[in-house]
């Protein structure tokens, strides 16, 4: 293996079943059900997936859900806003911990 990430892995995702076909089958059935049209539309779910993909920084998911978002009818502006939502939550999540820091400083300082 010459690299950690390989684009060919994405279309071969089902090979994960080699080690445990039963768990793979359960996972893929669940996965398919999650993304089906439901109370949220398939387009909305793809946008959420795109945002989460950026949060977990998974290149496979970014590849897959960029395509999926376009195919479900989202455009670049909408997709960029979704990525900013992920970014804002990540940034905000760091920053809110600043209050823990502040409490520590206030407790320890004079």
């Amino acid at each position: 293996m010459s690299e950690y990430y390989n684009p060919d892995h994405l279309p071969q995702f089902d090979r994960i079943g080699e080690g445990s076909p039963e768990l793979a089958e359960k996972f893929f059935a669940y996965y398919g059900a999650v993304f089906a049209e439901g109370a949220l539309s398939a387009r909305e779910k793809a946008l959420i997936a795109l945002a989460v993909a950026h949060t977990v920084q998974c290149p496979y998911c970014i590849d897959a859900y960029s395509k999926s978002c376009l195919q479900q009818g989202s455009d670049l502006e909408q997709m960029t806003e979704a990525v900013h939502v992920a970014t804002a939550i990540r940034g905000g999540a760091s920053l809110i911990h600043g209050l823990q820091m502040l409490d520590q400083v206030n407790k320890l300082g004079m």
Binding site: S41, R43, K67, Q71, G73
Partner: peptide
């Protein structure tokens, strides 16, 4: 009539019409 703007397939979901 909507055509994909790029190299991907047209969406077939009924919800797309509602969004439009």
């Amino acid at each position: 009539v909507a055509n994909p703007v790029g190299a991907f397939l047209a969406s077939s979901n009924a919800s797309v019409e509602q969004e439009w």
